[in-house]
């Protein structure tokens, strides 16, 4: 081995940086800035709505059924819109959750991963997720109303068109079709998270595959299914384009009572208030108040369901 050099390079200099790395500093800063900007946009929107909408909000506002003039802050109310939105979303879940969960069960528990059919189904689900909401509206009008509804009227021999026109049920079905991918994806994820060992144990005890799925797997997957339901509900509550031609009404004197009734809607009302008001300054407070209610409803629906999900999780954990 060579004799040591009197000063090996390491001793000569410490580990200081030779010069300041400007470009790394600058670009890292840029990315941080971008993140902050996005968050700022989020906060700006939320603050703007809350601050402006808070004053216009009142118990009277929420509980009144308005007369035809929406734009007078003193007499108007949004009760039918709140109810309309809530009902349509509720009816939607009746359709979307069973279909979505069953499809997810098929994809996770029964389908072969490599078969082309599975890939087509998955492709269809992904594609469905990307269809523009207005196209769903057209689909709802063209298929549900004009085809299913009209034929239903013919079969039932209705005196006047009841099913073949914009109605609550068709709007809900349209939304169900739109949010199907959300439920499927969330359910699939939760099914996949369940270890195979659980299923094996059940089969080893003599249960059938179906029993295993229904009694062991599904209950474990419940929180995930609820997440899917929440996301679907939250998304559907805020969507206006799909219901434009399938059921929303500009004005209804009374609350919707049957599936075949049209309904009023919060989001649509926001649209009406912002674009058709004769005096935007006067309408501003009710516009913001309505937006605030819509936002609260979307987030509150979210929140309530998250609570349910947490509680279900706790209960399921206690079972183990």
């Amino acid at each position: 081995m060579t004799a040591t050099s009197s000063s090996s390079p390491a001793r000569r200099r410490g580990f200081q940086a030779e010069r300041f790395d400007f470009s790394s500093f600058f670009f890292s800063g840029l990315t941080g800035l971008a993140t902050v900007l996005i968050l700022a946009i989020l906060v700006a929107i939320l603050l703007n709505i809350v601050l402006n909408g808070w004053d216009g909000l009142s118990w009277r506002f929420i509980s009144t059924i308005p007369r035809k003039d929406f734009f007078d802050p003193d007499t108007t109310g949004i009760l039918p819109m709140i109810i309309g939105t809530t009902i349509r979303v509720f009816v939607m879940t009746l359709f979307v959750i069973p279909v979505g969960v069953i499809t997810a069960i098929y994809l996770t528990e029964y389908a072969s991963h490599t078969s082309p059919l599975t890939r087509i189904i998955r492709g269809a689900v992904n594609n469905l997720a990307g269809v523009p909401s207005i196209v769903f509206g057209l689909f709802g009008a063209g298929f549900f109303i004009n085809f299913v509804g009209r034929n239903l009227d013919a079969v039932l021999q209705s005196a006047k068109p009841t099913w073949g026109q914009p109605a609550l049920v068709w709007a809900s079905l349209t939304l169900a079709v739109m949010t199907l991918p959300v439920v499927i994806v969330a359910t699939e994820e939760s099914l996949r998270a369940i270890p195979m060992g659980l299923r094996e144990a059940s089969l080893a005890l003599g249960a059938t595959k179906l029993e295993t799925i229904l009694k062991i797997v599904l209950p474990q997957a419940l929180p995930g299914i609820m997440t899917g339901g929440i996301l679907a509900v939250s998304r559907a509550a805020g969507e206006v384009a799909p219901i434009l031609f399938t059921g929303v009404a500009y004005y209804m004197a009374s609350l919707p009572t049957r599936l075949t009734d049209p309904f009023m809607d919060l989001g649509y009302h926001v649209y009406v208030l912002s674009t058709q008001s004769p005096n935007i300054e006067k309408t501003r407070p009710i516009l913001y108040a309505t937006v605030l209610v819509l936002l609260v409803l979307t987030f509150a629906l979210n929140f309530v369901a998250i609570l349910i999900r947490a509680r279900v999780r706790k209960r399921l954990r206690a079972l183990h």
Partner: peptide, 22 residues
């Protein structure tokens, strides 16, 4: 940060529209 940014997608487009308009 990740969930916060994804929260932006939970704002309905009508609400964004109002914000943009006003």
């Amino acid at each position: 940060t990740k969930p916060a940014i994804e929260l932006l997608s939970g704002i309905p487009s009508v609400v964004v529209g109002v914000f943009a308009l006003l």
